[in-house]
């Protein structure tokens, strides 16, 4: 049997929960009473043990900052809002997971799949590239052409500084 992991109290960051609470979406983290309503109805948790929202919140409140930010489990949330509708404490878990992801991004731990999506949106203004090929196909079907690039998103990126992370 695998040896149980023992948490070393000296490695905990007691400020982590306040950092999350000050991030948009993370405000309600301290209301969690660990009832596990979220985990029991979670469609991702039902097929994978990589994701357990109750456990992630517990780890965050304890201050296991490094583990929460460096492991990839917070990125498993599908943002389906099933738990959010049922949480008796209004913790708003998908928004909380987004808040933790925002902190992970600032700490240099962005998930490569999201980094790529962020890059495409910044460079093209959209998630999927539209080339002449797609527009010709659209024209044949009687659909209007779609603009290939939208530069305004890149300008927003330079205002918010997110360009430095994903571009």
């Amino acid at each position: 049997m695998k040896k149980k992991e023992i948490i070393n109290m000296d490695e905990l960051d007691p400020q982590f929960k306040y950092e999350i609470a000050s991030q948009p979406g993370g405000e309600h983290i301290l209301k969690c009473v660990q009832c596990a309503t979220c985990s029991s109805g979670c469609p991702v948790a039902s097929v994978s043990d990589r994701f357990n929202p109750r456990k992630i919140i517990r780890m965050a409140v304890l201050g296991l900052k490094d583990t929460v930010l460096r492991e990839d489990f917070v990125w498993y949330c599908a943002a389906c809002y099933t738990c959010s509708e049922r949480c008796p404490q209004d913790v708003r878990i998908p928004d909380l997971m987004a808040a933790v992801r925002n902190i992970a991004v600032k700490e240099g731990c962005i998930h490569p799949a999201y980094k790529e999506q962020g890059r495409l949106i910044g460079e093209l203004g959209r998630l999927y590239e539209v080339t002449e090929f797609e527009n010709e196909k659209r024209e044949k079907l009687g659909l209007p052409k779609v603009r290939e690039k939208n530069e305004e998103i890149a300008e927003i990126y330079s205002c918010t500084g997110v360009g430095k992370v994903v571009l």
Binding site: Q23, P24, G25, W75, A79, A98, A99, R101, N102, V105, I110, Y114, Q117, G118, I121, G125, R126, L127, V146, R147, N150, E152, I153, I156, Y157, C159, T160, V162, V165, V166
Partner: peptide, 25 residues
């Protein structure tokens, strides 16, 4: 409207302010 672009959804996980700005655009 040809000025429409990405709705911002994937950006909510990256940076909240960028998401809101891209959606509000």
């Amino acid at each position: 409207l040809e000025d429409f672009g990405c709705c911002g959804f994937p950006l909510e996980s990256i940076d909240h302010t960028t998401y809101l700005s891209v959606a509000a655009r």
